[in-house]
């Protein structure tokens, strides 16, 4: 059997497969890249050939235009592809629209690179599919036992309760443009909130893309097209960077909220001067991470980015080999 280190190895540009001659989520321009999902720290511009799910290629084209790779090859979930004798397959990661795990296999050795993933249901993307493997390459964004995300519905209920409690204020909810925005919209609609929701201009293109992929987000309006007084009692979604921006002056008495896994730590919420922290994350929490490594029970765990020590410690305690890859360039803030 091939040694796993000969099939995939960390390099300064990211994970590299020598026999297949491709990188996975490279942080520098490379000749051939497989991209797990469209977040900017995983999908970067300037590669030669890019292989990804059709949705991820769409997202990259929207965000990077001509820089989204000279050649773009779509690969659907479940389809197989041979790259220089390495068998490649993509499986849903449950993170955002288009997000995939990459399974690479050769000579009886299979490695699954999770990319970013979560296990709980998300109305905007297919659920994570466990793929049995010899080595599981896991993210570790929330790999500490203090991260236990509560049920999404409870957090959405918190937001709706606050809107009832402060009907004169405009609730301003910070969300990441890709994934979180659309998931929160879909969750609000599931909870029965059917009033128009107002968007910061930076969020509209991605919401349109999701709708083109068949995801219903209800009635959306632009803050820019709305009078200030009409936004009292309304919900506005904006990128996190806008929460303390001068842009908020166009909102009536805004109540800053933020939907992120980091909101589970009080100091993080206070750093951003958030008055209503909502713990909604597109990443696996501690229980999901450990349940996944237990379920897959691979011989070996490689941990990419986040709080590697804790997950490595946990896996070793379970008798698994585990190590931190110490990859750089992945942005923990987009979580």
């Amino acid at each position: 059997m091939l040694r796993p280190e000969d099939l995939l190895r960390p390099t300064p540009a990211g994970l590299y497969c020598p026999p297949g001659d491709f990188h996975i989520d490279p942080v520098r321009p490379v000749a051939r890249a497989i991209v797990t999902h469209g977040h900017a720290d995983h999908a970067r511009p300037g590669h030669g050939a890019v292989l990804a799910t059709p949705a991820t290629l769409d997202i990259m084209a929207l965000r990077m235009g001509d820089e989204a790779g000279r050649e773009r090859q779509p690969l659907d979930y479940g389809e197989r592809l041979d790259l220089n004798g390495v068998d490649v397959r993509l499986a849903p990661a449950g993170h955002v629209l288009g997000s995939a795990q990459v399974a690479v296999e050769r000579d009886g050795c299979r490695i699954v690179v999770s990319g970013d993933y979560k296990r709980r249901p998300d109305p905007t993307c297919p659920a994570f599919e466990p793929v049995p493997c010899d080595v599981f390459v896991s993210e570790a964004t929330f790999a500490l036992p203090v991260f236990r995300h509560p049920p999404d519905a409870d957090e959405i209920a918190k937001l709706l309760a606050s809107m009832r409690l402060f009907p004169e204020r405009c609730h301003l909810l910070g969300v990441y443009a890709l994934g979180k925005a659309q998931r929160v919209l879909a969750l609000l609609r599931q909870a029965g909130y059917d009033a128009p929701i107002y968007l910061h201009g930076a969020l509209t293109a991605m919401c349109d893309l999701y709708r083109r992929h068949g995801i219903d987000l209800g009635e959306l309006r632009l803050v820019a097209d709305t009078d200030k007084a009409d936004l009292a009692g309304r919900l506005v979604l904006a990128p996190p960077s806008a929460l303390q921006d001068r842009w908020t002056r166009r909102l009536p008495d805004p109540l800053p909220a933020f939907a992120s896994g980091w909101m589970g730590v009080r100091a993080r919420a206070r750093q951003r001067a958030v008055e209503l922290p909502l713990i909604i994350s597109d990443h696996a929490d501690w229980d999901e991470l450990t349940a996944t490594t237990d379920e897959l029970a691979p011989a070996e765990i490689w941990v990419t980015h986040g709080r590697e020590e804790a997950l490595v410690h946990y896996a070793r305690g379970r008798g698994q080999r585990a190590r931190a890859l110490a990859l750089v360039g992945y942005d923990e803030d987009a979580a």
């Binding site: 100091a267 804790a310 946990y314």
Partner: peptide, 18 residues
């Protein structure tokens, strides 16, 4: 709680009660 996981967590959160 596993002491290693507790210390990592406490170092990260920075507040014992939390």
């Amino acid at each position: 709680v596993d002491p290693v996981l507790f210390e990592l967590s406490y170092d990260y959160v920075g507040d014992l009660a939390e």
